[in-house]
Amino acid sequence: MDLLSEHGYRQDGRKPNQIRNINCRLGVYSQADGSAYLEQGNTKVLAAVYGPHEAKQRSRILEDQCLINCQYSMATFSTSERKYRPRGDRKSTELTRHLEKTFNSAVLTTMYPRSQIDIFCEVLQSDGGNLAACINAASLALVDAGVPMRGIVSAAICGATDGQPCIDLNAAEESANIPRLTPCIDLNAAEESANIPRLTVATLPGGDDDLLLLELDHRVHHDQLEAIIDAAVKGAAQVHACLQTAIRKHVSEVATCLQWENS
């Protein structure tokens, strides 16, 4: 399947450098310290944050910083073919490690020694870019929980075909079989399952764009790598703008309810 049509549009009508629609909401659970629901196109993710709280496992307590404990899980009905186990396979464990690594860099862990923050992500519907969507949802959930971070982490997945990077691949795009190189941002599941190079990037936009996570699947020529990374970072910046708007709206609503502008 060709990711790009002859006019340069993708299967779902997007341009290569366009991310999918993002809908999100903070504070969906009452019992977790922080929670968020995020939709990136048809990929739907729920994230919950517990903490910071006293570390429960004595063996893992860190004396000088906070312990970040994550879990990535996919509901068995999230994919079009039923998944046999929600977690515990190698891929889920790998993605869990990616989440931990990303947030270890973003959360100001040195401020809370000997405590623990739990971040749990559940993918309800998988249409490509699962890791990126989980990072975005977890970022929102951490903000909802009031956990101090260096900034809002935003992530995007980028593929490449036909001389152009394609951002935010969906599942169909991820599965397309494309030999050539065009960066396409925000792949969906169809786009993701292709044998094309896929790069997931998590950034901390701000003064300097810090890259917190860089993960490449498949292979790409050294010359094209920079273009893909560049496109991915731009895509993440677009995601960052969406997340920031959502956070500002949420904080305004809550602070107004609490009547903070009067106090």
Binding site: Y29, Q31, L46, A48, Y50, N69, Q71, S73, A75, F120
Partner: peptide
């Protein structure tokens, strides 16, 4: 029937 207690509900359900 398959039931999955997600860790989202409580950290006790993790792993």
């Amino acid at each position: 029937f398959f039931v999955d207690c997600s860790a989202n509900a409580t950290p006790l359900f993790a792993g």
